[in-house]
């Protein structure tokens, strides 16, 4: 068992013929991901990377029974592609694209209110079940299966944590990158719940973003769960947070919380263990 995907999950890729998509999807297929379809409006060929191409998500789903999508479509046309995937009622849509505008994301989130689709990203490395399959752009070195579930707001810090955990023999059940953009998708609550119910996952790790309040939302969701699994949050203090005031000014007046010490309080109250370095995280896991 794993959450969200495994090697049997049928994956379609929107924008598969682009250079970045081709490079990363080829790697994902080699890793074990079952890519069954590519979606390219105005396609010029019938196959790419050995995968059949379709002009619409709907057609691809009908012909191949794909249940999840990975979106590599450039920012300016990403909204249309994402909404197409939501309308096709896919279970999960992972958006790798970065640079999608806030207005587009607000519109997408409105659509999601009436949908069961879980949107992961944009600007995310994606979702991976080590040694089985991944949706996204993970490094090849993510290979070690194990009992740790990871939810993260920072892609590079995830790479660093996984690398350090693998060195001491600790593998992961599933890793979910929530995305680094101003507005990202939904489904945190469900992901936390899925991890909590997953028999392969013993400990859940949250790698916090350095700004934003998405993590607080997660903490509240976790606090409301029954039979909680151990939950450790890696929260690194940011010496530059205040110097980036303008970028997060919106955040401040909406939620009033930017300082990590205030986040820490919310986490503690939810029963989450907080660590402030990868060393401390390792120590907590080996204890």
């Amino acid at each position: 068992m794993s959450i969200l995907i495994d090697k049997k999950t049928k994956v379609l890729v929107q924008g598969i013929t682009g250079a970045q998509a081709s490079f990363h999807i080829q790697r994902a297929m080699k890793y074990g991901t079952k890519v069954v379809a590519g979606v390219v409006p105005n396609k010029r060929e019938d196959f790419h990377l050995g995968v059949p191409l379709f002009e619409t998500v709907k057609e691809a789903v009908e012909k191949t029974k794909a249940t999840v999508s990975v979106v590599f479509v450039p920012a300016k046309s990403a909204k249309k592609a994402i909404i197409e995937a939501i309308d096709a009622e896919l279970d999960i849509v992972v958006v790798i694209t970065s640079g999608i505008s806030i207005a587009d994301m607000m519109e997408i989130r409105q659509r999601l209110l009436k949908s069961k689709t879980i949107l992961i990203g944009p600007n995310t490395p994606g979702v991976i079940t080590p040694s089985e399959a991944y949706l996204g752009i993970f490094p090849d070195s993510f290979q070690k299966a194990g009992n740790i579930g990871i939810i993260s707001r920072s892609s590079t810090l995830t790479y660093e944590v996984v690398w350090e955990l693998n060195k001491i023999g600790i593998g992961q059940s599933t890793i979910v990158g929530l995305g680094d953009d101003f507005i990202v998708g939904t489904g945190y609550g469900e992901i936390i719940e899925k991890f909590n119910n997953d028999e392969k996952t013993d400990v859940i790790i949250l790698i916090g973003g350095i700004d934003g309040n998405y993590e607080l939302d997660l903490a509240y969701k976790y606090a409301g769960l029954d039979n909680k699994k151990k939950f450790i949050a890696l929260m690194v203090d940011d010496p530059t947070a205040l110097s980036r005031f303008d970028g997060i000014a919106s955040e401040i007046i909406c939620n009033g919380i930017i300082e990590t010490y205030k986040k820490r309080e919310v986490f503690k109250n939810a029963g989450i263990t907080i660590v402030d370095s990868i060393q401390a995280l390792k120590y907590e896991l080996l204890k």
Binding site: M106, F182, I183, N213, F245, I252, I253, C254
Partner: peptide, 30 residues
């Protein structure tokens, strides 16, 4: 003020009788 709440993905309208102060002070008021 008009701002965007990231978690709710919504536009928010703010008004306050406290004006012309810096953000840190504004947070305290909040």
């Amino acid at each position: 003020g008009i701002a965007i709440d990231r978690v709710k993905a919504s536009v928010m309208l703010f008004a306050s009788t406290v004006f012309d102060v810096d953000k840190a002070y504004f947070i305290n008021v909040l």
